[in-house]
């Protein structure tokens, strides 16, 4: 029950007692995301990365921005799916 609830709570019938806790954890993670995005895109961190350096011939700034961007998209997508499942119940 405990291990089952870690991945997909409620799959084995009634939501386990920790479902609320899991949901809250995901919600907290979802709350962190926009701040993470702010730090990645609107902070001196970006200045640090957007120098003249290149990696494999591509500016590090470009790699950094698009890398962070796709990572955020993936994180948002994963959390949204889980939070959407929570809502379904």
């Amino acid at each position: 029950m405990q291990t089952g609830s870690r991945n997909r709570p409620g799959e084995d019938g009634a939501p386990p007692a920790s479902a609320t806790f899991e949901h809250r954890r995901r919600r907290d993670a979802a709350a962190v995301l926009p701040f993470a995005a702010l730090v990645l895109f609107v902070s001196p961190l970006l200045d640090l990365m957007a120098g003249a350096d290149t990696l494999f011939g591509i500016p590090v700034g470009v790699l950094y921005i698009f890398g962070s961007w796709f990572a955020l998209i993936a994180a948002t997508g994963l959390l949204a799916r889980r939070l959407g499942d929570d809502q379904e119940r």
Binding site: A30, F41, I65, L72, T76
Partner: peptide, 20 residues
Amino acid sequence: GYEFLPIYLGPTIVFTGWYF
């Protein structure tokens, strides 16, 4: 240079906080 990006990054930030 990068200045075209905020127009797309702003919405991205809002969408990551969609739950709220």
